[in-house]
Structure formats: structure tokens, C-alpha cells
Design a binder for these strands. Sequence first.
DNA 1: TACTATTTAATTTTT
DNA 2: TTAAATAGTA
Length: 723
Amino acid sequence: MDVTPILESLNEAQRTAVTAPPEPLLVIAGAGSGKTRVLTHRIAWLIDVEGVSPQGLLAVTFTNKAAAEMRGRIEALLQMPVNHLWIGTFHGLAHRLLRRHWKEAGLPQNFQIIDADDQQRIIKRLIKSLEVDDDRWAPREIQYFINAQKDEGLRPQHLDDENDPNRRQQIAFYHQYQEICDRGGLVDFAELLLRAHELWRDTPELLAQYQRRFRHLLVDEFQDTNAIQYAWLRLLAGKEGVPFVVGDDDQSIYRWRGARVEHIQQFQKDFSGASVVKLEQNYRSTETILDAANAVIRNNTARLGKNLWTEGGQGEPVRIYSAYNERDEAEFVIGKLRTWSEQGNARADAAVLYRSNAQSRVLEEALINARLPYRVYGGLRFFERQEIKDALAYLRLISHRDDDSSFERIVNKPTRGIGARTLEAMRSYARANSCSMWRAAGAVASNALSGRASSAIVVFLNLIERMARDTDGLDLHEQVDHVIQASGLIEFFRKEKGERGETRIENLEELVSAAKGFEPDPAEEMSHLDAFLSHAALEAGEGQADAWEDCVQLMTMHSAKGLEFPLVFMCGMEDGLFPHQRSIADPNGLEEERRLCYVGITRAKESLYITHAEQRRLHGMDSFAQASRFIAEIPDELVEEIRPRVQVSRPVHSAPGRRGRAGSVAPGAELGVRLGQRVRHGKFGDGVILNCSGQGAHAQVEVNFESVGTKILVLAYANLDLM
DNA sequence: TACTATTTAATTTTT
DNA sequence: TTAAATAGTA
């Protein structure tokens, strides 16, 4: 057997991992150290050299995209298709299991997957229906609570209210939410994992069967597994399984989503024989960039400890630019981008990273002005679009009449005279009889209700039944095409004014194409329609179909994880923005922000620019901030500060209300107060003026005091000393 | 029921 | 600032 193709191009540590004996192994893989390569080569090694059948392998990735990429790479390496190899996300694999064993899992055969948006709608409706004082309960928080419990593997009955009425109510919401889902055959993302775990836990013979089949378990991005995923993995591994997990504790940035870095340590405890391999040689960045990243991350306490090194050269210093405000910052970035592009570099090799999406706007405006093509990552994905979800809701209702989530979504879209009152009647009937909205609709229609309302319902019920009949036996794409026509959705969006309606119709037509191109897994015994619906929920699709123009890449630092670019800008590096205000007080939160910063820095291969603004307009208010503490953590000798160009028209500070709001005197100006001015207050001590408003006797200032925080004071009474 | 005015809140995101 | 949700009006 010639193992050259698998082993050549691997360094010592990588080779150790790839060729490790079949025992539990933990690979700590620093940024740019060839993590994915180790994983794919390991799989190839197992199949080609160890003679493991592809069917005996289970590989888990973080995203669908990563899964597809990994399969491609393995096939390239082995020069053969590996269809029977299970590669997927935790959710994808759990879904597969639940489809196969729906009965044992206690699910209806045609259960539907709901996404976060569907979930929130259900919760909103639930809050309204329970007649609690709805102001106190934000749907988002309930949703967060429910998902957090599920991520920990906890059912409502496992939860103790701790005699806290607040918590008691949350648990009650969770309980009722679950009932709604169960009744409608709906499974949310966290539920996929939880059910799959319970399925194995409660059906030992099934577990044993899978344990026999999957001896080798390979996990990517291990630092981002949550409790239920880890528990699932441990169940499957049992005593005989051989887990091979790869992760980087310094790149764990999804704690807020239930991910626990601690699983890395837990892994070493649970699999006591596990060896550890560290990949510390970095093939991506210059030494300067790595040194900067190392210096920053060194400030975190809970680390396994590792130091990235490279054989690459010193490279350029990290450049830091202090902008006056966010527009100046954007101008600076665009200037550098233009030079980059003019020097013959690909625009797509440059990335502009920021902490939060809202920051992209100013950058985009500047890019448009400069006529530089760009692409923003993130945002609405194809299957998340309103019109697409509407169409899917019709399809789901055809497949599964009891799906209340879909029912509510489209019962009156397009409008067919089923208003709030009729809906309420149906809801209360459904609640009283613990039945689905579909059944309730039938009952309410024949019962006492205004003739108009009841005939409207009948029209709707007949419509769905007729669509189900008419699409029966058709090809998937014909079904989709029929439904978008017969539902009246196309007609409905045609009436929508402006370009928006047109785009929607185009998207619906695109949905037909997507259905045409959809190839269901022949191994799964679902109807094509159900397979398509699951696919739509599980894989929301790309944001924009990437017209592969050479574009500057804009994205959050989170979505930059796993990517690399020769030229990187990290923008908005200010305390309060990054680290974000909401994480700053909590040491755990701060460490996660620092890891995010580490991720950002290590995206850069050659050049790294870090920018911050002294003044930033955020939420419509001008505010001042210090440069991010992370900047100070980079040693001076790695840094080159870029002095602002002379002759730049510095925004006039004495008019902080922003230039020329015609006729109005800048608030505070008459009293000689300006934003950023340091002041002293008799009681509160020293502070900085953050904001001014009002005129004359009513003028107010917002002051951030060093000792007591932010206060709003009436200037006329505050007796501030200017300093 | 549809449109308009007002209020409110505002990380990060994949599944 | 602005987007979205809610309340109020035609």
C-alpha cells in the first residue's frame, strides 16, 4: 500500500495524529495549523490503510458547508466516492436517525423541522394565549430559555422552579411550548439533538447496533459542542468507540449558544486513555501577526496553553489607525482597499471584519461611493425569506395537516377574509379540545359563526385539500410550481408595490428550480416532498447566490471563523463595541470576546489593519470610546501607528450635533460644552461628556462619571467645572 | 382590513 | 438611526 499521498505534505505533529493507533485522541489545533487537513487525512488513513469500511465512520462538522467540503476532500484524496460515509452536522445526523427510527423516538413519521423564526412565532402566540401580563415576557427570552434547557438536555420535568415565580413561569412556557410542538409533529433544532440522545439512551438495542457500526467518530470544531451533543457522542462511543476530536480552546466563540470549551477537559477525563496531539505550527500568517494574536490570547486565564509559531517571515507590522469617527474610519479602510486593488491584488483577498452587523452600513456606503464591489456575508438566507417560508408552509400543510405553525402562517395569506376574530375562535377551540388548528377550523366552520367567516374557512380547507389532491403523484418541482400558483401567493406578491414584489416572485420561481435540482438521499424512505422540506429547514442555503465577481468581503468576526485572507481589517476596535458592552462586566464574557479577537487577528495572512474611532454614531447618538483594551495587549514593537493624514478636514468638535442641521445651534455649544469634554461634578466627581441635548435652560448633558457611571444632568443646575 | 403613526429597543449565528 | 412591532385610524 502506498501511503505517500496521505502522508506527504504533513508535518510531524499532523502525521502523528493521522497515523495514531485506534484509540481516543484529542487534537488541539491552533488557527491555521491544518486542522481540516488532519481530519480528512485521518479518515483517508483509516479507510485506506487501516481498512476500515466507510460505513464504520461517523464524521461530524459544525456546518453543512464544512461537511460537503470534507466529503469532497476525502474523495479527492482517495480518488473514489464515499457515499456510505456518514458526514454531517450534529443536527443533520440526528435528523437522519430520527427519520429512520421515528417510531422509537415517539414522533410522527412525517414530523416537520422548524427553524428559529417558526419557533419564535409559536412562542409569541403562546404568550398571547396564556393571558399573562405580556409585557413581562419577551418572546426572545423565553426562546432563549427553552433552547438553553434543551442544549443542556433538560426537559421541563427535570427543572426545579427554585421557588422563583419567574422561573416557574418560564418552565411553564417551556412545558406548553413542547406540547404545541408535540401535537403538531414539530421538531426544533435543539429537539433534534435531544430526541436523538433520548432515542439511544432509552433503546439500548438500537444504541448497541449503532455502536457496532460506528467505531470511529471524528469530530471537528470540538470546542463548540454543547452538552447534549457531547452526551450523544459519549453514548455512541460507549466503551469500544474510538473518538478522534479536533478543536481549539482559544477559538471557542459560541458559549452564548450553549457551546462548552470545558468538554475538551471533560474528554480527557471521560476517555482516560486519550492521547493529546497539539498542532502549533501555523501555515497561514506572518510571525508578527501570530505574535500579536498570541500576546492577546495570553491574557485569558482558562487555557490549555499553546503557542503558535511559523516558519514564515516577520512580515509587516500590525497597523493601527485611530479615526476621528466612523466615517473617517471607513474612508481610511476604503483608501487602503483601493491601493490594494490598484496594485493588482484581488479584492476578494481582502476582508473587512467587525463585531456587529450594524457596523457594516457606514462601510458599505463608503464602498459604494468608491465604486468598489463588495459582498456582505450573513443576512437572510434563501429558505428564510418570507415568501419562501410562505410557500413552504403550504407544502407542509399538504404533507401534514396538523402543523399549526404553518397553518397560522398562511391561513390568511393571501387574505381570504379570515380575520383576527375567526382565528381566535379557532385557537380557543383548539386549546379547549387539545386538537390542531386544522381540526379546529373544521369544527368552527360548521358551528355557530357568522356565515361569512365560516364560508371563508371552508374555502381555505377546500383549497388545501384540493392542492393535496392535485399535487398527488406529481414530481416535486411540479408540486411546488402548482402550490405557488394555486395558493394565490404569486398573485398576492404581484400586487405588492415596488420592486419588492417582483423579487419575491422571482424567489418563488427560484424555489421551483431548487426543487427541480433537489436530489433526495435514496437511502431515506421519505417522500420527496418531506425530504425537500427537511432539507430547506436544515440547510437554509446561501445568502446571495454568489455571483463570483471579485468582491471585497465584509463580515462579522464570528462568520470569519475558519476563513483566511491576505489582507484583513478589524474595524470598530473600541471598548464597548469590541469587547461588547454586554460582555465587558463578566469575566467569562470578556474572555470570549478576547477569543473572538484572537480569531479575527489570525484570519490575516500578510497584512492586518486595526482601526478604532474616537467618536462613533451608534443608535443615532454620538458617543466616545477608548480604543479597545485588546489593542493595548498587542506589544508595541509589533505595531505601527498610522498618523492621521494632515489636511484632513477634522469634523468641528464644537458642533457635536453634527454639521449643519439647518438653523439649529448645536446643543450645549453656547455654554462652551462639547462632546468628549472632561468635567468635574461636585458630587459625582470626574467624567466625560457623552451627549448634549436641548437648548438654553433646558440643555442637558449625558456624562459618564468614572465613579458612578452615566448620568443625565440639566446643564443649568449641574455646576460642572470644565477641565 | 389596510394603512399610518408611535413606541421600543438595539451582539455574535448555525442548525 | 432604524427596523420592527404595536396601536390607532380610515
